[in-house]
Design a protein around this nucleic acid. Structure first.
Lengths: 155, 155
DNA sequence: ATTTTTTAGGTCAGGGATAATCAATCACAT
DNA sequence: ATGTGATTGATTATCCCTGACCTAAAAAAT
């Protein structure tokens, strides 16, 4: 019955549990200790962070090296359920124009799902992308928009 | 009482407390005295200032040598939106790496000039840009970062 | 008035202690 | 066979701290 999960999965769950216990949405780790606890190489911790605690997932990482070094994991948003991510993906689609994106963002702000400042940030990022390349970027715009919305849309 | 934090951290907190107590936004120190108080080498004070009281942290340093020497620490205050824009533009500069940008965003969130959600959005946009282009993107990153920060600082 | 001495603070390189990165390899599913 | 995710270890970068040497300003000596 015991489904053997990957080490990365176990470490992820351990970190999420720590966050759950804290209630303060921020925890501080020592990479070396965590690696010892799971009997793995320290860089494995970085792999877990890179693959599961990115900004897209609503997390921010602050770290310091040297003596008294640490890794702080900050949970900015609650976990966005797949259901909601699918909804966002549906709204955005595989490709999107700047004009369509603007309409979508306006609607989201209207529903108070994002703030005016957040809407500005997203619009600027998309505009920068659109102005950069020629016209094959509607797909890329859709990807970026989904990443950004996915990171801040809370449950 | 165990020493849990680094010496630099303790000195930082001591200075911040002084600033807090003063109520005013400026304090004056003697490097030698402070070093003696913490039983360390005087240059350690310089290290603390260099690593924690830079403009990106919201401080300016003024000092004088010789008899009646001093180190003054001034907390930056941006009264007008214009000052805020200039401050940000100066911090970002003409070019910036992804690593530098992340550090800056951490400081800005610490200063409560941006929220965690806004930091998420900016980090995602910058990383998207950095990973997309291969090479000479430090200028473009600086432009995008200034655009994004500038847009929300005035709201 | 000029020079010398004294009294500060500044800069830099280096070493120990961490964490980050990267390329190689492994594991497993398709 | 191939592709994706997981794991490792070697290398690189960063942080903290010290101490040797440098510079500036004021006082003292001339």
């Amino acid at each position: 019955m015991e489904k053997l999960q990957s080490l990365a999965h176990d470490i992820e769950k351990y970190i999420l549990n720590l966050l759950e216990d804290e209630g303060d949405n921020i925890i501080s780790l020592r990479r070396k200790e965590l690696a010892e606890m799971f009997s793995c190489v320290p860089s494995q911790i970085n792999y877990v962070l890179r693959s599961r605690f990115r900004p897209e997932h609503g997390f921010l990482i602050d770290s310091r090296r040297g003596e008294h070094g640490y890794i702080k994991i900050l949970r900015v948003t609650c976990e966005t359920p797949d259901e909601k991510l699918n909804h966002i993906a549906g709204l955005v689609g595989d490709e999107i124009s700047l004009k369509e994106a603007r309409r979508l963002l306006e609607a989201l702000q209207e529903r108070e799902l994002i703030t005016g400042r957040e809407r500005l940030l997203i619009e600027i990022a998309l505009r920068h992308l659109a102005e950069g390349a020629g016209n094959v970027e509607t797909e890329e715009m859709a990807d970026l928009l989904k990443s950004m919305l996915g990171s801040i849309m809370t449950v």
